[in-house]
Each structure stands twice: as C-alpha cells, then as structure tokens.
C-alpha cells in the first residue's frame, strides 16, 4: 500500500544533521542524520525510553538541540528568530500522545482556536471547517463535548482534528495507537494514509506498533537506546527483508527471528 507513492519526486522536507540530544550531561541520542522527504510517511521507531518523544520535541521546537541542526526545507529551524520558527510550526500539526486537548474548552473550541488565531475567517466559516474536521475523524455531532467527557480514543481523534485545523504540510504523531484497541488503531492508520493521499501531507509517526509500522511506513529510522544513535534507516519492509543488524531484526519480528546464540537470560529471550 505504501509502495505506490514512492514514485514521487524526493524533495527533502525535514533534514536532521548531526543532531545530539541531551538532558544536562545525560546524552539521549547522538550523531543523528536523516531526511524526511515530501509525502513520506516516516516512522521513528525504537524501544521504550530510547528518545523517540525527545526527538519529536526537538523537531517541533520544544527543546533546543545540544548540537546539530534541523532543517525545514532550506531553513535551519533552530538558527532563525522565534517568529520564523512559529511561522514554520504553523504549517505543522501535532497529535500528542494523550491528545493534549485544552481541557477547559469544548471540542469545537479546541479545533477552532488555531483558526481564530491565524485566519481572518468569519465565525460562521470557522464553525463549518470545525464541523468538517471533526466529521473527518468520525466525531461529527460532538462539537459541544468537553474532552473529559470522551474516551481516550475519541480524545485522540479530536486531537487529530485539531492538528489538521490549519491544513498542515507536515503532521507529527506521537504514539498514535498507544491506548487504542486494534480496530481503532487500524482506522487511525487508514486515516493517516487517506490524509497523505488526499492532501499530500508529509507524516512523521513515532511508534513501536509493528502492524502500524508495516501498514503505513515507507521510510523509517531505528533509534537504539544502548548505543544511543540511529542504527538503521530505510523502508521498514526493506529493513525487515535485508537488515543485518540483529537488534532491528529482533524488533521488527517481535523477537521471533533471533539467532539461537543470543538466547541467554529470559529477558533476552524466553528460555523455556
């Protein structure tokens, strides 16, 4: 499904060069280099705690890199004025792990806020766009609900509606399927594919859900928590077929394809 779109011209959308991320002296990941092309569905994968979400925070302007650069097109994101950074971020939509809806506002107000801030649309027009976006994520009729009145999955979808409010060029997803049942997760994947097909949106997905990775990803990086850097990148299907890095193989196969030599303690592989 993801292959058919690879024929597109590859123009870099986000480029990361020599990025090092750290909290104080504690280095999370170092020497990161990768490129997200326009129209990619780019997967950032890796075990828990390896710095996937921290990478996201560097990409969306919440945390300044210790070293290295992030480029949006040709603009060095962290070297320009804050105004310019905000302008770039306005073209990005972000779906946070827990939805991060503003809890004091209804769904409609949540989705409307970006539009009120950055467009000159009349309240009537905004209302229509809001209803459309909510309908796109399957929440038509929920305009006047508060986030706390919704289930986790619905909050996430509403978060997506908000992320899409300004028709972003890039959508970031932080663990989109975490906490969703398999069917909802699948629907969210389909929605991501639809968005890319319909709007040509570049999508960056942080996830460790194997079904999602293979269903939607056409490019990826694998962060390793031990060596603290990227140990593999490329199309996840190709990685699965060709990689010679045992860790990546183990991850992509849920540990099934592990060579018997590594069967040590139970935490490496169940020994019984």
């Amino acid at each position: 499904m993801s292959r058919q779109l690879e024929k597109k011209d590859k123009t870099p959308h986000i480029t990361v060069s020599d990025l090092t991320m750290a909290y104080g002296d504690f280095v999370i990941q170092k020497d990161m280099n990768f490129t997200v092309n326009r129209g990619d569905i780019f997967i950032v994968m890796g075990g828990s705690g390896c710095g996937k979400t921290t990478l996201l925070r560097h990409l969306i302007g919440l945390k300044r890199p210790v070293k290295g650069k992030v480029f949006y097109g040709d603009t060095s994101f962290w070297d320009v004025e804050e105004e310019e950074r905000n302008r770039i971020m306005r073209r990005c939509g972000i779906l946070y792990q827990g939805g991060a809806l503003w809890s004091s506002m209804t769904l409609a107000e949540n989705v409307a806020l970006p539009l009120e801030e950055y467009t000159d649309l009349s309240p009537g027009d905004i209302g229509e766009i809001v209803s459309l976006k909510l309908a796109m994520v399957g929440l038509a009729g929920y305009e006047e609900f508060y986030p706390s009145e919704l289930s986790g999955g619905m909050q996430k979808r509403a978060g997506l509606a908000r992320a899409m409010a300004l028709d972003p060029e890039i959508l970031f997803f932080d663990e989109p399927s975490a906490g969703l049942d398999p069917l909802s997760a699948r629907r969210l994947d389909d929605l991501i594919l639809e968005l890319r097909a319909g709007l040509g949106t570049t999508v960056v997905v942080i996830t460790h859900e194997l079904p999602s990775i293979f269903a939607i990803g056409n490019n990826s990086i694998f962060l390793d928590g031990e060596s603290r850097t990227i140990i593999a990148q490329g199309d996840p299907h190709k990685l699965l077929a060709e990689t010679d890095v045992p860790k990546v193989m183990e991850f992509l196969t849920r540990g099934e394809a592990i060579p018997p030599v590594a069967k040590g303690g139970i935490w490496n592989r169940m020994s019984t």
Partner: peptide, 17 residues
C-alpha cells in the same frame, strides 16, 4: 500544572500561542 502534565501547554506553544 495539569495542563503542563497533559501536554496542553506544549500544544499551545507549538501553535505559536
């Protein structure tokens, strides 16, 4: 503080608010 916890503040910041 709760907004900070729920990433609501992050969502504001990344929207340039």
């Amino acid at each position: 503080g709760t907004m900070q916890l729920n990433e609501e503040i992050d969502a504001l910041k990344t929207l340039g608010i």
